[in-house]
Structures are given as structure tokens and as C-alpha cells.
Write a protein that binds this DNA or RNA. Structure first.
Lengths: 277, 277
DNA sequence: TTATAAAATGACGCTTCGTCAAACTTTGAC
DNA sequence: GTCAAAGTTTGACGAAGCGTCATTTTATAA
């Protein structure tokens, strides 16, 4: 708790740089509004690159030695920098987790953007978004727990303010993407909104279901209560029921969404699915 | 990871005792099948009582100093026992978290049992179950994160085998209670099952939605993406949509479930709701 | 070339974790 | 009532992790 209040000047600078880094990232995808890019000095570029490098190393340690196997000391030992340098990037261990979560969310966002471009009706696009999120948790199993981890006070209480803000901004970005899809569905008549604010509710419900399902599935792969399910289809089933509840057309008995699910894997995320096997 | 393999004889005994303790607890509620109760010696009773005492102290520390404020050393300092004794109960810190989660789940189960006895149709009872789970996360905010925490490899990798097993058994117990309700709903025609196994899917979907919603709500009370929601009703809304998706009668436009929600608070959980304010 | 600002270093102090040999208590056999 | 065996408690201890900061090194720009 002391940490959060006594941020040094340097740490505040880092936070600022991190924000810049994020904006540049989003930028480099396809956001047309770009004001900041050329404002980066060589020095700042170094900082950003090193941060990415450190995160890579951290991810490798985690993939290799499990979640609790990742310690700051090990990270320092495994990279070419000193403790002080590492701590210039991450205020503490929880901050590192938060950074890993942010990396994961950026990845998800890039997948979601592709999902939205898929051929198909609005409900199929919605499924593709869920597929994207699920893909991430399969591809980076250990790391994807960070996204869950960050929802935990253990992290929220200690991570740096700047990173938590970025985390939230990214959540917001996904939210907006989903909002847009919902809006389109409403415009083309696939979905009927009672009130305009219902968009928020739908978005939150989707997020909850998707988050809840994959958290439980990921953690309890061998638990009995889950083992009795057809895990591959559990998420699809859950989301389909939810979308039926919203009367998002075409309803699940009018269209074979299992086929859609397979199609998404083949058409939209072929590379990622291939990388998994 | 070493710990899990090198359980001492004593630790195995503890695990066994813990199981006994759990069964006795379930027992003392209203389970008619009771074989074990009198097999407990005075010594074993002491162990059980002390464990409850330790958990109380731990909860107080956590409520007071936050999640990361709870350390084994502090727990030792705050209770009347020595380090060795505390470690006889909890193999390590994560094991302690798991124990707290178990305590929470027992509480939830007791609430769920009451929920099932409420006056009303099957869908209302289902809502009452969700209400119960939500109540717990409001009443024991910090502690309820343990339930989330335990889904995390940080805990799963380190907690003792025995406790994780108990945790799962309790999950199973809730699952069975919900299964039963779903079965009844199917029998009385409120709900139409395509295949008998669909019970598993419905149960899992409910669990996912409920878990996901409260995890996000609890963690992000001031996050923008969530702030824009009517938080009090968010969970009710989510679950209602889901149940509509299952065509669980009466549908949400045929009955005022907001009223049901309020009624549950007044009739079933009056004491708990009062304790909250 | 040099003054100044920024960044990197790693030894250090502190906290937390988890262990274990020794001291103590309970049990039950005689 | 005594005593040995079995079980339990204790707290000092070593190991490991965390995070800091005075000092050294590097970059910048005048």
C-alpha cells in the first residue's frame, strides 16, 4: 500500500511510457488516429522493447515452471538485466502479472478484430468473438490465468495504478467492439432492444458467461463436475443459450451453429488452430 | 510441487480428519445418513475446533488488512498457537486459502438448501440459489475471493491434495442440489429437456454465469465498463436471460422476477440481508 | 570535452515461508 | 500408579523471495 502512494518520478514516467506504448500498439494495428508515434525517442523505444523482452522471458518461465514458479529473482536471473532495471519496469510482482494480463488482452483484441470481419450474420460474428477469447486461453494456458488473476485483490491491491488503468482501458476497448456489433445486430433486425441501454447489459452478460465458462473449464479440467461435460462444446452451448435468451436471430434451432463453430476455426483462426496441434 | 509428493504421515492424517470434519458438518445440517459422528475422539474434536478457530482469525486478518495482508506469520502471531501447530493444519499458505474457500462453500451450501425450500415455482427457486451465492460474496467480500482464488494455478499447484479434493466434493454437492431442482422442473413441465444429459449443461451454464458475473462485479466495482450497469440487477438480468434461453417457464415476460428477487431477500434470507446493513 | 541528467547495478536489509530436532502431553498396557 | 510408545507442540533456524538505494555507468547536449 505504501508503494502506490510513493511512486517515484521515474516510476511515473514508466507508467506514462507504458500508456504511450499501448497507444502505439493499437495504432499499429489499424486505428487511423495517430498523433504520437514520432514523439518516441530512441531511448523510449529501448524501454518498450526491453519490456516486451522481459515479458517474453517471464512467460517462458511461467510456461515451464508453473504459475508459482515465476519469481522476480528468477526473472532477473533469466534475463540480461539487473534487479533494479527489472524493478524499473514492474513496480512489484503483481505489477508483472498485470503486465502479462495486458499482453494477453492485446492479443485477444487483435483476434476479436479479425472475428468481426468474418463472413456471416451478426450472431455468427458474436460466436467468433467468444471463440477468440477461448483460443487465447488454450494457446497461452498459464498466461491466460493472469487475466483471471488480475481480477483478484491480491493483484489489484498491489499492481501499479498505471497498469491497472491500462488494463481497464483495454477492457473498455473490447467492450466497445462488442457494443458496435450489438448495435449492428439491432440495426439489421437480428436483435430487438427494449431500451438502448440494454446494449450494456447484453455486453456484460456475454462477457460474464464467456469469462465464467473458461475460468471454470480451465481450472477444473479433471474435476468431476466438469468432466461429465462435452468440454469442447460447453462454451458454445452456454453462449448459444444466452443468445437465444436475447432472441438474437437466427435462433439456435434455425441454424447449425456447431457448423459455424467449426467454420470459425477453419476460416478465421486457421493459423492459430494449426499452432495448437 | 515437492510438497505434494512428500506428504508426511501426519499431514495425511490431517487430510483424513478434515474429510471427517466435512462429513460431520454436512451431517449436522440435515443429511440423514450419519455413520461417522461418534467415531470422533476428543482429540480429533480438538483438532477440528482449533481449525475453525484458526480460520476465524485468518478471516479477520483478511477483512482487516486485505488479501495480501494475510500471511502465515501474522496468523501465527494473532492466534494462541505456534507456527508448527498452524502448519500442522495448513500445509502452506495456499492450503489456507483453500480452507477458507471451503468454509465459504459450506456457507453457500447451507444457504442453497434454504433457497430450495422457498415457496414458489421452480424458476423462482433457481433464482434463489443464485441469490444465495451472491449473498455470500457480499457478506464476506474478501473471503469470497478465495473461491475465485482457488480456481487459480497459484493455489491449485500448491494446496494439499486432501483439501482440493474436499473443495471438489463440495462443488459436486452444489451440483447435485441444482441437478435435483432441474430434474423437478423437468418433471413438472416448467422445463423441457431434449436429452437427459442436458441437465449437466444447464447446471454448468448456470454456474458459469453466476460465477463469471459475480467475479467481474466484485472486482470491478469502480471500473467504467461495469459502472455503467445497474449493478444490483445485473446478476438477475443475466440469469433471467439465460433461463429464458432454456425456455424455463414461466418466461421473464410472464412473471415479474424483479419482485421475486425482492421477495427472496425478504422471505428466505431476511436475516442475512439485515446483517448487511 | 565536459557537465548534467538518466539508467543500471547488485549488495543489502527485511519479510515470509516452511522445517525439524527437541520438549512436552496423552494414551493405554501392565 | 508407572512407564513406554505414540502423538502433539514448540520456536529457532535456514532458505528464498521481495524491494530499496547508494554507487557506478551510460547517454545527452552544450
Amino acid at each position: 500500500m505504501t508503494l502506490r502512494q510513493t511512486l517515484t518520478k521515474r516510476q511515473r514516467l514508466r507508467a506514462a511510457l507504458a500508456v504511450v506504448s499501448m497507444m502505439q500498439k493499437c495504432d499499429s494495428n489499424d486505428n487511423p488516429k495517430c498523433f504520437i508515434r514520432k514523439a518516441l525517442t530512441k531511448r523510449e523505444q529501448n524501454v518498450i522493447n526491453r519490456e516486451l523482452e522481459l515479458l517474453d522471458v517471464a512467460e517462458k518461465i511461467m510456461a515451464h515452471e508453473g504459475f508459482s514458479g515465476l519469481t522476480m529473482d528468477k526473472l532477473v536471473a533469466a534475463c540480461d538485466y539487473s534487479k533494479g532495471t527489472v524493478y524499473n519496469h514492474f513496480a512489484n510482482k503483481e505489477d508483472l502479472f498485470c503486465a502479462l494480463s495486458i499482453k494477453g488482452m492485446k492479443f485477444i483484441i487483435s483476434l476479436v478484430k479479425r472475428a468481426l470481419k468474418m463472413q456471416g450474420n451478426s450472431r455468427e460474428k458474436c460466436l467468433a468473438i467468444v471463440y477468440a477469447q477461448q483460443l487465447h486461453s488454450q494457446m497461452h494456458a498459464t498466461a491466460s490465468f493472469c487475466v483471471l488473476m488480475v481480477k483478484t485483490p491480491a493483484v489489484l491491491e498491489r499492481a501499479s495504478v498505471g497498469r491497472i488503468a491500462i488494463q481497464r482501458e483495454l477492457e473498455m476497448e473490447i467492450t466497445l467492439l462488442v457494443d458496435e456489433l450489438i448495435g449492428q445486430a439491432a440495426d439489421c433486425g437480428d436483435l430487438t432492444l427494449n431500451r438502448r441501454e440494454e446494449i450494456n447489459g447484453i455486453c456484460f452478460a456475454l462477457w460474464s458467461m464467456s469469462f465464467g465458462s473458461s475460468a471454470i473449464l480451465a481450472s477444473a479440467q479433471d474435476a468431476e463436475a466438469v468432466a461429465r461435460l462435452d468440454m469442447f462444446n460447453a462454451l458454445l452451448f452456454n453462449v448459444n443459450v444466452l443468445l437465444d435468451g436475447f432472441k438474437w436471430l437466427p435462433m439456435s434451432n434455425e441454424l447449425d451453429y456447431q457448423a459455424t463453430w467449426l467454420r470459425i476455426g477453419k476460416e478465421v483462426f486457421a493459423a492459430e488452430v494449426a499452432a495448437l496441434s
